[in-house]
């Protein structure tokens, strides 16, 4: 029960309350750039979920086995090399370089795989894949996982990391699809000339962010309700 509540909390928090786009402002570039039509926006969202899950899994593996302080693999190598066993072995200085490398190469591999084996899928979101390397949302998910793995009171497992990735990806998809829907309606409106394009898009995003602020506090309510159920 505890595990389920925990996972549900992470999911709701990543998807709605602390929406990646509207609360943390990551992934703004595609949010502004690819939100002209609903179907392309949805395709972009799916591609982001896909890559985010893969990159998060890999970065969880790298962080928990190599990059965190006293991670097993460097400690093992250190002991084989005959180092002093009391030394704190910490490779976390390398983490940014390794994350960006993992993201860039996983995007490359996913693109090659999809093009070769899933031509239908490639047609629908393959064109967005190269763009995702520079999508801050993916790196942000990796950094969140790193933060929660380095914190000894949390020590996230793989299921929690995956939940964050899926929740964050779904949150991104919701935000970008809503935005695309609003923007296609905006084409019919009489917007002041100077605000056309980016200006009005930012203002719409601001109003959406305000709406999403309404979810604040929802996590605590659900947590209380669930813990009440568990006690009964």
């Amino acid at each position: 029960m505890e595990l389920l509540t925990n996972v549900l909390m992470i999911f709701i928090s990543a998807a709605l309350i602390n929406n990646f786009v509207l609360h943390y402002f990551v992934g703004i570039c595609p949010f502004m750039g690819v939100s002209k039509r609903v179907d392309t926006a949805f395709g972009m969202g799916l591609a982001v979920i896909f890559v985010m899950v893969i990159a998060s899994t890999l970065s969880w593996l790298f962080t928990s086995f190599i990059l965190r302080p006293m991670a097993p693999i460097p400690v093992w190598i250190w002991s084989i090399a005959g180092g002093n066993p009391d030394t704190v072995v910490d490779l976390s200085v390398l983490s940014y370089i390794i994350y960006i490398f993992v993201i860039a190469s996983s995007v490359q591999f996913v693109e090659m795989y999809v093009r070769k084996f899933q031509p239908k899928l490639y047609e629908s979101f393959g064109v967005f894949l190269p763009l995702i390397t520079t999508n801050c949302a993916i790196l942000f998910a990796c950094l969140e996982i790193m933060k929660n793995l380095q914190d000894p009171t949390r020590l996230w497992g793989l299921h929690e990391a995956l939940t964050l990735a899926i929740g964050g990806g779904i949150g991104f998809t919701i935000a970008i699809t809503l935005m695309a829907g609003i923007r296609s309606e905006l084409d019919l409106c009489d917007v002041p000339k100077a605000l056309k394009g980016a200006g009005i898009a930012f203002i719409v995003a601001g109003i959406m962010a305000m709406a999403f602020m309404g979810f604040t506090g929802m996590d605590r309510g659900i947590e209380q309700a669930l813990s009440g159920l568990g006690a009964r």
Binding site: I200, A201, F202, I203, A205, G206, I207, A209, M213
Partner: peptide
């Protein structure tokens, strides 16, 4: 967060 979007838009 909403303030950031509104200010940048304007």
């Amino acid at each position: 967060p909403p303030g950031a979007f509104l200010v940048l838009g304007l």
